[in-house]
Amino acid sequence: MQATILLATFALEPRRYKAIYYSLQGKQTISNLFASHEYGLLDQFHLYPKLKWNDYQAALSQLEKEKLVIIDQTRAEAKLTSAGLVRQTGLLAQGFWPTAYRYWQMGPAEEQWERLLLAVQVVSNYQHQIVHYQPLTEHLLIQRQVKAWLKKIGTAGGQNFVLELGLALAQLPEQAALIIANSFWSDYDAGIPGPTLAQALSLTPAELQLAQFNSLGLLLSLIRRETLRYPILQQLLPMPQTPLNRSADWTYHQVLTGKSWSAIVTDSRLKEGTLREHLLQAALLCPDFSIEAPAVQQLLKADPESFFSQRVQEIITARSSRTGGEQTQ
């Protein structure tokens, strides 16, 4: 991996580098989620699902060699040097770090990106009667999804897809629209190669990938915001209904219905600790987490000093201080 990209995940205060690795890789444990939250990396969760520990370590020691980070092996922590901070600031100013892509709301970025590009290839080829070709992704599930999507929207749908794309690209910030459009290609029009596109934008190929995800994030926000205008893009790029897994979703749903904590515990037949973990996940991952729900209030009042209460308070405080500058949805 490109070492300097890691600079975006560290700070002047020491951070546990293993937690950052697991976060980028998308390992879902509650302690990991907390670390990601603490480091402001929840949105970039699962950014590099195939990242290998060896490669990550190699990148980190390269940063150390270049005196951009200081690594404390015994505490398993790393922090930026002041030179590292300067580099980080410069890097972030380039605008490729995918702050607009929200993993928990939008799903795995690479899959969404491949769906979009494959749909463009398929529709463009179809319109030009190119029938036999190599789909641009080897991923069978994505191939099937796009095929099913095409069947559902029908032949006229292809034309509407193009119209929606045109509309969306016109609505996006100029840079994002340029990046998305110039990433498209088909067997009819082969476009421009990724490395050339990267160079035209003064980015490395690895940075371009992140810039593409960032632009995709903006596109997904747009089509989610304006449901009625983009029905076909929404079908192509389905976003998760909830960031929670099935059991956590069940628990949080019970809480939202107004049930008391003890009733939920009885109904679920799960350990109380597990249920509290579900709620912590909901607090972390659902931007509209309901702190007012009776069961939550019950837990907070029962023991304000408990791990649960402390964490929930932290999350809510952090969120309210952040919403001052940043838009939520």
Partner: peptide
């Protein structure tokens, strides 16, 4: 020439206009 194209131009190149 390998310079970036405007989004609308890309779409015109890829797709047949209705």
């Amino acid at each position: 020439a390998r310079h970036l194209r405007q989004p609308a131009a890309v779409l015109r190149q890829l797709f047949i206009e209705s």
